[in-house]
Amino acid sequence: MTSLLMAVKSKMYIFAHRKARGMLIGEYASVFRGRSLDFDDLRSYVPGDDVRDIDWKATARVGSPLVKRYVATRRQQVLFVADTGRNMAATARGGETKKDLAVMIMGVIGSLALGHGDSVALVHGDARAQEALPAKGTEGHLERLLRIIDAVSLKSGSSDLVAALEYAAAHYKQRMLLVVIADELAVQERCAKVLRRLGAQHEILWVQIDDVQLAGAQALRGPGQDVAAMDTVLTLLAQDPGLVGDYEAATAARAQALADLLQSVGIVMTRIGHTEQVVGNVFALLERHRRAH
C-alpha cells in the first residue's frame, strides 16, 4: 500500500502537466555532475538534459535527440535529511501542516529519483535521537520514508535539524545528493560548521518550508501556540505597526543570514510555503543547481 506516494504523484499530475514532468526528470538527471564511463542505455532527450550527454550519432540515426545514460548516474543515492521534531507539526505559511508539505516535497523528489533509478535514504530525528534509514530504490521504501515524516505530531520531541545534519556528516562517506528539508532555521555557528563540512562532500539541495507569518498583513489570526515551549504566543499583539516593522526587519535579517551561509557553501535553496508551490519550486531548484555548476 503506497497511499502517501500515490497522493504525492496525483498532486504532481495536477500541478505539472506532462511536458513539464518530463522536463522535471531531465532537470533531475542533470543534478549529478559525476559520470562513469560505463554506458548503460539511451533515452530520448528531454529539456534540461546536459547537452554533453546527447549521443549525436544515435540522434542522427533516429532523427530525434537521444541522450546517453551511464551506470554511475543510475545508482546514485539521494539522502533526505529531515527534521521529525514537533516543529514539523506546526503550521506552514500557506496554512497547511508543515509535515504535509515535507511529505509532498520528499515524495516529488523521491519519485523523480526512483524514476531515474536512484535509491533514496533518510536521516531524520529530533533533539533526543537521530535515525538513519538505508538507501533503497523501491516505491515501498519511499512510502516508508514518507510515513516516518507523516507520523510527526505535537507529541514528538523538540526539533533539532542541525543534529540530523551532524549525524549525516558523521555517518556517510560516499558522495550523495543531500536533500535537506528545513524550515526557517536561525543560523548559528554550529549550523554553519556542519554545512561547510557537508558541502565539501555532497551535492546539497536546501528546501525550506516557510513558517507561518507571525506579524503583518498575512499573519496568523487567532491564538497561537509555540511548539518549542508549548506556550501561548500573543498574536493579537502582532498587529501593532511598530512591532510589524521590527518583525519584518528581523525575519529579513534571519533569511539573509541563511541565504549568505548557503551561498558561501555553494548550496542552492528554495522556499516553499504552499502545496501549489512544490512542483514549480523544486523544478526551479534543480534548474538553478544545474546552472550553478
Binding site: 514537533r86 503550521t91 526557517e184 513558517d211 507571525l214 497561537g224 511548539v227 518549542a228
Partner: peptide, 11 residues
C-alpha cells in the same frame, strides 16, 4: 483551535 507555531522566537 490555537495554531501550532514553529520558530515562534521570530516574534
Amino acid at each position: 483551535d490555537s495554531t501550532p507555531i514553529a520558530h515562534a522566537d521570530r516574534l
